[in-house]
Computed example of a mutant assay.
Amino acid sequence: MLSLFSTFDYHGVPLVLLQKDKETETKFRAALGALQAFSLVTVGRGKDAIAKMHRLVALSTQQWLEMNGGLDYWRSEAIRSLASKFPGPGRQEFAAWTLYEALVPHVHCLFAHHYTATDDILQVAQLQISVGLYDLSRGRYSEAFDLCSKSLEIRQQLLSQDDPLLLESVQTLGEALLHRGELQEALAMLKTAAAGREKVLGIRNPDTLESLSDLTIIGLELDNLEMAESTGTRALEGRRDALGEHHLDTLLQRKRHSKGFLILEKFYMAKSILTL
């Protein structure tokens, strides 16, 4: 626990990052208590309690790990611990925003290190996507764009062009560009993601439908109503088949689709009046 702790931002570590999978609460508290007894950490109270470590303790522990060849191992473990607590696309919940915000400093602390193992580098790319999506939800569009760009760069170097993980990075970067108002760039990214996902995952896959739904939004923003109608129809039909008529995603897609048809109807009505 001391070794793992030292790799995080020692100013305040959520206890959830320190507890091993399947470790009992009794065993965890006993280990934490031993560190407290030797004044190596201090632990707060309450539901969202954090543990703190003095800077000299953290630096000494890191130096000891490096001398004994264990620092890279524990940084890898820290990345995995963060990835297990910071969910990716489609799994982030508003109720957990407090936890996500507490995890962000530790993510950036570990991003500052150089990783050589392929698994670690790909884990970093996944965390960049997860944190990027969280930043989008908080309105931090520039930060999200930077993280999603870095994730795509990593995956382009290590994965094939039709790998679902690479397409996930293309999709997420497209979403970041959409939020930044860079619509043409977002359109190119999301078209690539949609085409790739349809080829690899199929038209009824939720990821493919997500890309089509975002293309519908961009179509409406760019007044490309024909594209919006086409992608909106395909997304709605796909979600009906895959999720059912009353699933929340289907209902949201139907609302977006109805908005598109309303705009399209007004466009053709205005066009006919001008013709007359």
Rank of each mutant, 00 (worst) to 15 (best):
G196A: 09
G196D: 05
G196H: 03
G196W: 01
R197D: 09
R197K: 15
R197A: 08
R197P: 03
R197E: 11
E198V: 04
L201F: 14
I203W: 01
I203D: 12
I203H: 11
I203R: 12
R204H: 15
N205H: 14
N205G: 07
P206S: 05
D207G: 08
T208D: 05
T208Y: 02
T208R: 02
L209T: 02
L209Q: 02
S211P: 12
S213T: 13
S213Q: 02
L215I: 09
I217F: 07
I217K: 06
I218E: 00
G219Y: 02
L220T: 02
E221F: 02
D223Y: 04
N224E: 13
N224T: 04
N224I: 04
L225Y: 08
M227E: 11
A228T: 04
S230N: 13
T231P: 02
T231F: 08
T231G: 00
G232S: 07
R234M: 13
A235V: 08
L236C: 07
L236H: 05
E237S: 15
G238A: 14
R239D: 04
R239Q: 03
R239K: 13
R240T: 00
D241L: 10
D241R: 06
A242S: 14
A242I: 00
L243E: 04
G244H: 04
G244R: 03
G244Y: 01
H246T: 11
H247C: 10
L248P: 13
L252D: 11
Q253P: 01
Q253N: 10
Q253C: 12
R254V: 01
K255V: 10
K255T: 06
H257S: 14
H257M: 10
S258A: 15
S258P: 05
S258V: 11
S258E: 15
K259Q: 07
K259C: 03
K259E: 05
G260Q: 02
F261R: 10
